[in-house]
Nucleic acid binder design. Structure first.
Length: 121
RNA sequence: GGAGUCAGCCAGACAAUCGCUGCGCCUCAACGGCGGGGAGGAAAGUCCGGGCUCCAUAGGGCAGAACGCCAGGUAACACCUGGGGGGCGCGAGCCUACGGAAAGUGCAACAGAAAGUAAACCGCCGCUAUUUUUACAAAUGGCGGUAAGGGUGAAACGGUGCGGUAAGAGCGCACCGCGCAGCUGGCAACAGUCUGCGGCAUGGUAAACCCCGUUCGGAGCAAGACCAAAUAGGAAUCCUUUAGGUGUGGCCCGCACUGGAUUCGGGUAGGUCGCUAAAGGUGUGUGGCAACGCAUGCCGUAGAUGAAUGAUUGUCCAAGACAGAACCCGGCUUAUCGGCCGACUCCCAUC
C-alpha cells in the first residue's frame, strides 16, 4: 500500500480536450500566484487528476517548459493525498521559468493547501 | 617556452530513495512482480537536398525559381573532395556570388574642361593682328596644333626608356603588359622564360534589368491506410449533357469526377497502424591523392501522443555552457562553460 501511495500514471491525468474544457468552462475554485494559476473542480472519479498548460508564449524555451511540467507533476504526486478528489489545471504565467526548483516547490505547496481549503468548504 | 593554423573528441561522475514510459518474461488477467532500454552535438533555425505517402502514370507549353571556373563523389544537393584563376598572410593556411559588358536597355553622388563615337581649364607650340621697343623680344587678341606636364576624381583610353617633333603623340624602336591565332602540357578549368601576328582596339556595374547554359510537377506524417458511436449523404451499371464547377498548385492545354433510374452501402468523435532496422554504426581487407566505392565480420542503438526520459539528498572534482526527439536520413547556418588529443607553421632560448 505504501508503494502505491505516490504513484502518478495515466489515471491521475487529464487526457482529452473534453476533460480540459469542462474545467475551463466552470472552475469553482481558482487560486493564483504571479507566476502560476490553478483552476479546479470536484472530480467525478475518486482519483484526483492534473492537467498542465505551459504556453509557448509565456515560457519560451522547450527545456524550461519540460522542467516546469516535471516539477509541477512531482509536486502534485507528492501532495495528492492531502487533496480531496479534484480535477486541477495548472497554468504557467510569464516569468514562471525564472523560478528555481526549491522556490517552485514551496509556491506549489501553498497553492495546494489553499485549493484543499476551498474544496472542502 | 611563447604566438598561431588545421582537424577531431568529451559535454559532470557515483550512490541511495521516490516516480514516468514503452519492450520482454511471470500470471486467466491486472493499475502487480522481475529484467534490461530511454534526448543532442547541435535534438534548434526550418535554409537546401532526398526517402516515404497521396494527388494521374507526373505529360506538353508559358510564367517563375534556384544554381553558375573545372573534374570527381553521392540517393540527391546550394553539400563534400581534389584541381585551376584571383585576393590576404613572413608562414602553416584562409577567403572567393569565379558564365556573358565588341545583343540591347539602364545607372554612376561630389569634384572636374571632359565620365565614353572621349575631352582643350591651365600649360606647351606654330601662324597672324595690334601695342611697346633702335633691336632681341614681351604683352594682349584671333586661328590652329598638342593628351608630354599641372589640377579633379574610386576611375581620365597601356607603362618605362630612347629616338622623333614647332610642341607633341605607338608616330617609330627596345623591354614589360594586352589581344588574337598556333604549338606544347593537362580529361578539363587553365598554364607557358614557346612561336607568329596586331601598335593596342574592348572603362566600370550583370548581389541592375537582361542574355546563355543546367536543374526543378504539387502538397506534406494533422501525409496516408484501417477499425469504428453519431449525423449528413455516397459507390457500381445504364441513359443524358459537353456549359459551368471540383480535383489542381501561378496560368493554359490535357486527364478524372458530376445530372436521372436501378442495385449495394458509407465514415466525424475516439482508437489502431504509419513509428522506427536506418542511403545505420563500427573493425579489417582492398581500389582511389581525397570525398567515397567494393568485399567481409561484429553490434542491434528513444519512440512519447494533454505528449515519458525526472525529483530530492549525500560524496567527489577541473564546479557543469548552449539547449529537449515528434516520420526518417544527408548537409548548411546559428548558440555554446570548460577541458583533452593529434598534425603543422613562425619567433625566442639551449645543445
Amino acid at each position: 500500500m505504501n508503494a502505491r501511495q505516490y504513484c502518478f500514471n495515466k489515471s491521475s491525468r487529464l487526457l482529452s480536450s473534453r476533460d480540459f474544457t469542462v474545467v475551463f468552462d466552470n472552475p469553482p475554485f481558482k487560486v493564483s500566484h504571479p507566476q502560476l494559476l490553478v483552476l479546479a473542480k470536484h472530480a467525478n472519479t475518486p482519483q484526483s487528476r492534473l492537467g498542465l498548460v505551459i504556453g509557448k508564449k509565456n515560457v519560451k524555451h522547450a527545456v524550461h517548459r519540460n522542467r516546469l511540467k516535471r516539477l509541477i507533476r512531482e509536486s502534485f504526486r507528492l501532495k495528492q493525498h492531502n487533496l480531496p478528489a479534484i480535477d486541477a489545471i495548472v497554468l504557467a504565467r510569464r516569468g514562471a521559468d525564472t523560478l528555481s526548483n526549491a522556490e517552485l516547490f514551496s509556491i506549489l505547496d501553498k497553492l495546494w493547501t489553499r485549493v484543499a481549503r476551498k474544496a472542502t468548504k
